[in-house]
Computed example of a mutant assay.
Amino acid sequence: MSTPDASWIEDPDLASAVAEVEEFAGAAGWDRPPQLFALVRTADLARAEPQLAARLAGAAEWTPIAQDALPEGDLADALATVGWPPEVAGCVLVQEILVLPPVAPAGDTAGIRAAPADDVPAAGTDPAAPDGRPHREGRLVAGVLRDRPGGACLLRMRDLPDTPLRGADLAPNLLAALRTTLSD
């Protein structure tokens, strides 16, 4: 019997750091550019910066530290230029995204049902979607640790702010891109 892949299971301490970053980003409001955070072990930060020790007492395992703004343009290109020193144990990225509904193959209506009009959340039209599919805006926060598999993600929809989605499997490609920033 093989060992199941547990990379979809969130590390609770990493998930806590991701939630902290999302709360910080939420306080700044919507319509913000992507922002990157370094994650350092709180105990290591307290030893390195003794003047912060009292403020960090009892804090979470990981402390997120906001980084300079990412260059404008393609996020993948920006992440390809990022490298971290060994003291950085992980990183978290927060970005706003458009969530499009899935597209069924032509003629395939399996699993598609019409929702009553009052159950459908307010939606816009993404001009980039050639078929004019409705979209919803969200804030996606994803984080990884250098020495642990998987990651943690949180997605807060703009129209449903009190109901965030969580799970390491929400953005596997983004988690992989963040992991490459931690490569030696």
Rank of each mutant, 00 (worst) to 15 (best):
A104K: 08
A104W: 01
P105M: 06
P105Y: 03
P105E: 10
A106C: 01
A106N: 06
A106E: 12
A106R: 13
G107H: 06
G107M: 05
G107D: 04
G107K: 05
D108N: 15
D108P: 07
D108T: 10
T109E: 11
T109A: 14
T109K: 02
T109F: 09
T109N: 07
T109C: 06
A110P: 02
A110F: 06
A110Y: 03
G111M: 03
G111Y: 04
G111T: 09
I112L: 12
I112E: 04
R113D: 02
R113S: 04
R113P: 00
A114D: 08
A115Y: 10
A115T: 04
A115P: 01
P116C: 02
A117V: 14
A117I: 11
D118F: 10
D118S: 13
D118Q: 13
D119N: 09
D119G: 12
V120K: 08
V120F: 06
V120Q: 14
A123W: 11
A123L: 14
A123K: 13
G124L: 14
T125S: 14
T125M: 15
D126Y: 13
D126T: 10
D126A: 15
P127Q: 02
P127L: 04
A128V: 00
A128K: 01
A129G: 02
A129S: 14
P130T: 02
P130M: 00
P130R: 06
D131T: 11
G132A: 13
G132S: 06
G132D: 05
R133K: 09
R133P: 07
R133S: 15
R133M: 13
P134D: 12
P134K: 08
R136D: 00
R136K: 08
G138W: 00
G138K: 00
R139F: 00
L140E: 12
V141D: 06
V141W: 11
A142R: 06
A142D: 10
A142V: 15
G143C: 05
V144K: 00
L145I: 05
D147N: 15
D147H: 13
R148S: 09
G150Y: 07
G150T: 10
G151V: 00
G151H: 01
G151E: 03
C153K: 08
C153Y: 08
C153H: 08
C153R: 07
L154S: 15
R156Y: 03
R158H: 12
R158A: 14
D159M: 08
D159V: 10
L160C: 07
D162M: 11
D162P: 04
D162C: 03
T163M: 11
T163L: 11
P164C: 02
P164N: 04
P164L: 05
L165N: 09
L165A: 15
L165D: 12
L165R: 15
L165M: 15
R166N: 02
G167V: 01
G167H: 01
A168V: 01
D169Y: 12
L170K: 10
L170P: 06
P172Q: 11
P172K: 10
P172F: 12
P172M: 11
N173S: 14
L175M: 00
L175F: 01
L175D: 05
A176W: 02
A176I: 02
L178P: 05
L178V: 05
L178A: 03
L178W: 07
